[in-house]
Nucleic acid binder design. Structure first.
Length: 447
RNA sequence: GUGAUCAUAGCUCAGUUGGUUAGAGCACCAGAUUGUGGUUCUGGGGGUCGUGGGUUCAAAUCCCAUUGGUCACCCCA
């Protein structure tokens, strides 16, 4: 017998879960549309070269590669097997394609390819699954849905503001009022690191800083020193980064070009966010984000009752350059739909009804089928959900079915009702019953 | 890639120093109730104790291996 389980880190979704997921995804999509973003989709697979080398060395390891088929595979295998040592490079000849790791790189590829068919600045949203060959754990899946909104072809920080507005609108309409948006600026961070005079790579330092909340100040100092920073450099770095959580305090930083550029953008964004965004926005100089391609403002959203971030994003100045379209700046964010769903379900903020509107089950009491068919049509015309129980089963069984399935009403259409020219409707929650004339059916379930 | 931990019914779990026929709750099915569900009562079905091997008169229990799940690190939505 074949196994009934699904691969590690992937899941089935039952109808009960799907109604919550649809609710979330529909809400986000509708919000994106109101902000004039347009939808696109890209294939689940990209050519392997499109993805490799874009996410740092850790990222490359987490990309799912798709094995070649047929002769190409046989040739690659025999070439590898004939060698005494299998070079890592050779394994790439086994795969020409890989599953997408995020939606941002495919988007950059998409923009470069279709540059002549698009109007810039171009605002797109994209809601699709991505795959990562990670070890699954709480809030971490190997297949998960990202909801990306990006604006490409404009350097204005009006775009950053809009993305934070969308973040605030999304979480407040979902009922997640405790979400905190943390922001930082890659240039500012880089400027600070420059001021320390260290020759340790910027990327290495930011990753350590990012762990601050988790491991504490002393451990951060330790790791920085292990990374090769001198004690004096660490001291300077910590002094600048430590406790700089208000816009006033970052103005006390030394001035160089990068710091000034970063500061003025952050200052503007924080001021606007305070006035126009429905979410708490905090400056956090420790926020780094591992993805290499960010160059300006970076943002991340967290919730105090959830261990990992539920949204991430930032500005990238030259993503399309790798695909032959240089000098185009973009900024975008990605909602982690699966994590947000988990959080909503933890906080019981998802709608309970599996049908997204009033729902009615017509009980089968052996009445003339066409009478029930007409009744169902009338109910559906009034925009409610209608279903006819197909078999003339015991009433108890049908009632239990209606109850378990979550129908709001059942309709009795039996011999008694037929002779009186009426229908009996029972509210499944209150137990109230009332009689209606057949032609009142279409208006009863309206609104 | 590194580390920890767990695996008994569809689900959540009990199961004593190894010792009769492996239990409970929930869920499911049937009846009490032949036109009324969600409450109650009664009864019923359902397990090769993850898999393979070993120790023993005897293994869910002890040993070894293996597979799978979960959690953490790394990194990230």
């Amino acid at each position: 017998m074949s196994s009934t389980s699904v691969p590690k880190g992937t899941r089935d979704f039952l109808p009960d879960q799907m109604s919550g997921r649809k609710f979330l995804l529909n809400l986000l999509e509708e919000l994106f549309q109101r902000h004039a973003f347009l939808p696109i989709e890209t294939p689940s697979m990209e050519k392997i070269d499109t993805l490799l080398g874009k996410y740092g060395e850790e990222g490359d390891r987490l990309i799912f590669k798709v094995l070649n088929r047929g002769d190409r595979l046989s040739r690659a295998l025999s070439s590898i097997c004939s060698q005494s040592d299998i070079a890592v490079k050779e394994t790439n000849s086994l795969a020409d394609a890989a599953l997408r790791y995020d939606l941002t790189i495919p988007f950059a590829r998409f923009i470069s390819q279709h540059r002549n068919d698009l109007h810039f600045p171009f605002k797109r949203y994209q809601i699709q699954p991505v795959w990562r060959a990670d070890r699954p754990q709480k809030g971490r899946y190997r297949e998960f849905v990202q909801c990306d909104v990006d604006i490409i072809g404009s350097s204005s920080i009006l775009n950053e503001l809009e993305l934070i507005q969308i973040t605030g609108e999304a979480f407040s309409s979902l009922g997640l009022s405790d979400v905190i948006v943390k922001i930082n600026h890659r240039k500012l961070l880089e400027g600070i690191v420059t001021e320390t005079g260290t020759n340790v790579p910027f990327q290495k330092i930011t990753i350590v800083l990012d762990k601050w909340e988790k491991i504490g100040l002393e451990a951060v100092k330790n790791e920085l020193s292990q990374a090769g920073m001198k004690e004096k450099e660490i001291e300077v770095l910590i002094r600048y980064v430590h406790q700089n959580t208000s816009i006033n305090s970052i103005q006390t930083l030394p001035s160089n070009q990068m710091i000034e550029a970063g500061c003025s953008e952050l200052e503007q964004i924080l001021d606007w966010a305070d006035k126009y965004c429905k979410v708490k926005v905090e400056l956090d100089l420790k926020l780094a984000r591992g993805l290499d391609y960010y160059t300006g403002i970076i943002i991340e959203a967290i919730h105090p009752e959830f261990g990992s971030s539920i949204l991430g994003g930032g500005r990238y100045d030259n993503l399309t350059g790798m695909f032959g379209l240089p000098g185009v700046s973009g900024v975008g964010i990605s909602f982690g739909a699966d994590r947000i769903y988990d959080l909503l379900s933890l906080k019981r903020l998802l709608p309970e009804s599996p049908f997204n509107r009033k729902s009615v089950l017509i009980l089968n009491l052996g009445a003339e089928p066409e009478w029930m068919i007409r009744a169902a049509s009338l109910i559906r015309e009034s925009d409610a959900v209608a279903d006819i129980y197909p078999d003339e089963s015991k009433l108890k069984k049908q009632m239990k079915f209606a109850n378990d399935k979550g129908f709001d009403f059942v309709v009795f259409m039996g011999a008694k009702e037929r002779s009186e020219g009426t229908l009996k409707i029972r509210n499944m929650q209150s137990g109230d019953e009332l009689e209606l004339k057949s032609d009142e059916l279409s208006t009863f379930f309206k609104k």
